[in-house]
Amino acid sequence: MSAMDEDRARRAMVSLRGLALGDGFGQRCLEAPGEVGPGGQWRLPEGRWRFTDDTEMACSVYAVLRGRGHVDQDALAAGFAARFDPGRGYGPATAGVLASVRAGGDWRELAGGLFGGAGSFGNGAAMRVAPLGAWFSDDVEEAARQAALSAAVTHTHPEGVAGAVAVAVGAAVAARREALGAPAFLDEVLAHVPAGEVSEGVRAARALLVVSDPVAVGRELGCGQRISAQDTVPFTLWCAAKHLDGFPAAVWETARAGGDADTTCAIVGGVVATRVPGGRLPQEWVSHGEPLPQWVV
């Protein structure tokens, strides 16, 4: 691996760890919502925070990048299928695709045939892609292109792809670690996201930066209740923009809105982790998180 790819791998691993912590934290908050308190009364959920399909799939994205330096769609599909664990909470459409790929099916036909040939616009491609954005933070256009390739393995609908592009670009911009205001952060995301509902949602999120209450913003934009890219990605990018340099606050505020909290917190965690000095995520959080699989570390 070249020195450049070693640097990329380090950035992506920090993002992956942040994604996994957000994922497990959000899932634990769904299981024990009473433990999520307001800003001045935060108390971390007790016990081990078990990660979900968000992290399992993100690990495969990272592994392909580390092994090949780019998205090889066949390798990514094979990795997703080989590591598919139904106990991690996969959505039924993706679970069906991966089970069929594992049995020898062609991922192109399976993903493209979902929902009458329209493809999936679920939030699954967006939830796993932040480490890819961190990997390509030195080339945001390439981050967008590679994100689209990674999405199409399971999500071929334009909005599903756009959701992945938006999150990857957000992670790439964040990982540059430049001083950046929230409006400028979302403006750069918008410059790379194809026109459509996800793009319009991110534009609405930018207008809502004047609002401080994530619950209110979640009601306006959606916070994953429909499990779609359209009602997940704009809210997560609002949360990341509002707390770009504060990992705990970003993930807590994301969880406060409810909805698909494991996925929204995974996305936000994967984006803002790249800004943590030295990649040192809060030890109190790390002590609760489920370790990443041995095959990826």
Rank of each mutant, 00 (worst) to 15 (best):
I267L: 01
T52A: 04
D260E: 07
Q27Y: 12
G269Y: 01
L76P: 10
F84Q: 14
E109C: 08
F80Y: 11
A3N: 13
D262L: 02
R102K: 12
A126D: 02
A191F: 12
L221V: 08
V173K: 03
E220K: 12
V61T: 12
V165S: 13
V296F: 03
M57G: 07
V272E: 00
V101R: 15
D72L: 05
S150Y: 01
A216W: 14
G196S: 05
V268T: 10
S2E: 10
G258T: 13
V276Q: 11
E200N: 15
A130V: 14
R10S: 10
S2K: 15
S100N: 14
R66S: 03
G289T: 03
W42H: 14
C239E: 11
D5W: 13
E35K: 04
Q41D: 15
R128F: 00
M127S: 07
G22V: 01
R203F: 08
L208E: 11
W135H: 13
R66K: 08
C265D: 08
Q73C: 00
P86I: 15
P282I: 03
Q27V: 09
G104Q: 00
G116S: 02
E35F: 07
L237G: 04
R206A: 12
V153A: 05
E253I: 02
T154P: 02
I227C: 15
P158C: 01
G163H: 07
D54Y: 10
D74A: 08
C29E: 06
R226Y: 11
V297T: 12
P291N: 05
A207C: 14
S60P: 08
W42K: 15
R177W: 08
L16S: 05
Q294R: 14
D262E: 13
R88D: 03
G24P: 06
G201I: 09
T156V: 02
C59L: 14
A162T: 00
T236G: 05
L44E: 09
S212N: 13
V165R: 12
E141S: 10
D139P: 09
G270W: 05
V297M: 04
V202A: 07
G133W: 05
Q283N: 08
R66G: 10
D54E: 09
A9M: 04
G69K: 04
L221R: 01
K242L: 11
E200Y: 12
V169A: 04
R128W: 02
G289R: 15
D139R: 11
F84W: 10
A3D: 11
E6D: 10
G279E: 05
A103V: 00
V129K: 05
